[in-house]
Nucleic acid binder design. Structure first.
Length: 145
RNA sequence: GCGGAUGGCCGGAUGACCGCGGGCGGCAACGUUCGAGGAAAGUCCGGACUCCAUGAAGCGACGGUGCCGGGUAACGCCCGGCCGGGGAAACCCGAGGGACAGCGCCACAGAGAACAGACCGCCGCGCUCUGGCGCGGCAAGGGUGAAACGGUGGGGUAAGAGCCCACCGCGGGGCUGGCAACAGCGUCGGCACGGCAAGCCCCACCGGGAGCAAUGCCAAAUAGGGGUCCCGCGCGGCGAUCGCCGCAGGCCGCUUCAGCCCAGGGACCCGGGUUGGCAGCUAGAGCGCGUCGGCAACGGCGGGCCCAGAGGAAUGGUCAUCCAAGGGGGCAACCCCUGGACAGAAUCCGGCUUACAGGCCAUCCGCGCAA
RNA sequence: CGGGGCGUAGCGCAGCCUGGUAGCGCGACGGUUUUGGGUACCGUAGGUCGGAGGUUCGAAUCCUCUCGCCCCGA
C-alpha cells in the first residue's frame, strides 16, 4: 500500500506505479471488514448515495481496539444479479477503494461500499472514482463540528 | 450452389503498466512461476473417501431399474444390434418384461364396453283396418365410440355367418440362422385370447445409513453440574462373600447359526464454555501423442506432460493494435460510433440434464448446374 | 452438502391420492331495497391450472425435465 512519503496524486494519474512499502507506524493501512457486527454498525451510521454505488461511513470510538487505520467492506447482495455480476461489481468497488481511500479516506474510520445492479459494473471507471471522492468529502464535512 | 441430417471443435487474441491468491527461493526488500468452465450451473444418477451400525445366510418391508449383447470401478450412462413408429432419403424418436397369478378402471355417446349383444335393419311364416303387428332365424350392412369379438376377395344361403376356400393377420408346436433379443421357412388350428401395469400388482436384478459444516489432531475455555424418563441388577449346580458351568435375559425388523455382554446400559431437556489453528486438499478410474486389438463404446503397450487450491473465499482497472458482430456515411477503397453468448471452482472423479452471441471442420442425403 | 413444501379467477384457498363436470369465500360489475350511503337479497362476468415434453381415447390430476418462491437440518 501507499507509504506516507508517496505524495497523494490526482485521480487521473492513479495508474502510476506506487513504490515503497509498509512502515510500522503507517496510519493509512487499509484492512477489510469481516465481522457482521461491523457491517451492521456502519449501516446505522451516516451514508451517501452515488449513481454507481452507496457509501456508508462510521468513525470508530477512539477506545476501540486497532483504532488506527482505514477499514473498508463491500456488499453486493443477490439483488445485484447472478454470481458473475456480483463478483464483477465487488471487484470494481475494490479497485476504486484501493485507489481513492489512501488519498481521501481518514484513519479510524470504517467504510462500506454497496454495489448496484448493472450500474456498478458498467459505469465509467473514472466516474466511479470521482463519485467516491465526492461522497467521502460530503460525509466527512457533515461530520465536522 | 441451395436445402437438410449427423459428429466434433473454438467460444475473443497479443502486449504494456498498476493490483489480488497460491507455490518455490530469500533474514528481508524482492524475484520467479502458476491462477476458472464446457457447462465450474441444476443437484437428477453412479462411485472414491471418512465416520456410524456385532457378523453371516434366509425372509419381510421400502426405494429403484426393466428388449438383447457388449463397455465400465460403477451407473438410470455409453456403444452395437433387434423390434415398433416418423421421414422421399441421410437420419431421428421410443420407461421397449408380464394383461390365462389376482384385484381394479374403461366417463359421455351407443342396442351392446368384456361369460357379448340386437336399436335401425335383412330373411321366412302367420295375421291385417295396407299404416303395420306377432312368432322365429341372422349378425353381413347402417349408426355410436378412442376401442364393437379377425381383414380382403370368392363360394355358399331363405337371409346370413370361418359355414367352406385363397391370401394376409393371430395362436400352438417344429426346423434353419444368430451368443441372444429376434428373423426366415414350412406345418397344424378355423379364430378362441380388447385396452390401461408412467393404477395396485407379479417376475428378474440392484440397494445398510450419513455426508468434507464428513472426519482426525492441536490450542483455548467452563463444568466435573442440574432435571425428566426407560430397561435391568434373575435362577440352578459345583467348590469357604469370588471363580467356573448351565438356563433365562440383552446386543441386527423377524428366524436360524456364530460371536459378545452380565451389573450397569440408554434417551431427551436445561445450564455453562468455544465460534481459533492445522490436516483432510488436490498426481487423478488425470491429460494429450503414437501404436496394436475391436464395427464401436473401450482396452493393452510405449514414451511425454503437471494442469487453481481459496477458506466472509483470489482473476480487477486502464491503454494500444487486431478479430467477429450491430448501426451510420460513401460508387468504392475506406471512415466514424457502439461493443463481446451462457456464465465464476469450494473434497474429488464418471455421466445425465439445462443455458449459450457467433464461428470453424469433417462425413452423409436430396435437388440444380457443369463434366 | 442434504431434506421438505408451494405455484389453480384480482386476493386467499379446495379439487390431485383413486385421470373424464375446474368449485368455495372475499372482491369486481349490474339490479332491488333506502331520500342517499352502508347492510341485506338477486343475477352476471372472469381461470394458458408456473412452463415444455411424454403415458392415455382423454391430464389441473400420472411420469420426466425445467422456472420461480418459501422453509428446515448439519
Amino acid at each position: 500500500m501507499t507509504g506516507p512519503d508517496s505524495p497523494a496524486t490526482d485521480l487521473h494519474s492513479a495508474a502510476v506505479p506506487r513504490t515503497g512499502g509498509f512502515v510500522a507506524s503507517d496510519t493509512k493501512v487499509i484492512t477489510t471488514l469481516a465481522q457482521r457486527a461491523d457491517f451492521l454498525a456502519a449501516a446505522r451510521a451516516r451514508h451517501r448515495a452515488t449513481p454507481g454505488f452507496v457509501v456508508q461511513a462510521r468513525q470508530r470510538p477512539a477506545a476501540a481496539p486497532g483504532a488506527a487505520g482505514i477499514r473498508v467492506g463491500f456488499t453486493c447482495s443477490k439483488k445485484v444479479g447472478n454470481a458473475v455480476a456480483r463478483n464483477r461489481a465487488k471487484r470494481r468497488l475494490r479497485a476504486i477503494a484501493r485507489l481513492v481511500l489512501p488519498v481521501h479516506g481518514r484513519p479510524g474510520w470504517d467504510y462500506v461500499l454497496i454495489g448496484r445492479r448493472d450500474v456498478t459494473a458498467s459505469r465509467d471507471f473514472w466516474q466511479l472514482q470521482a463519485d467516491l471522492a465526492a461522497a467521502l468529502a460530503k460525509l466527512h464535512a457533515a461530520h465536522a463540528p
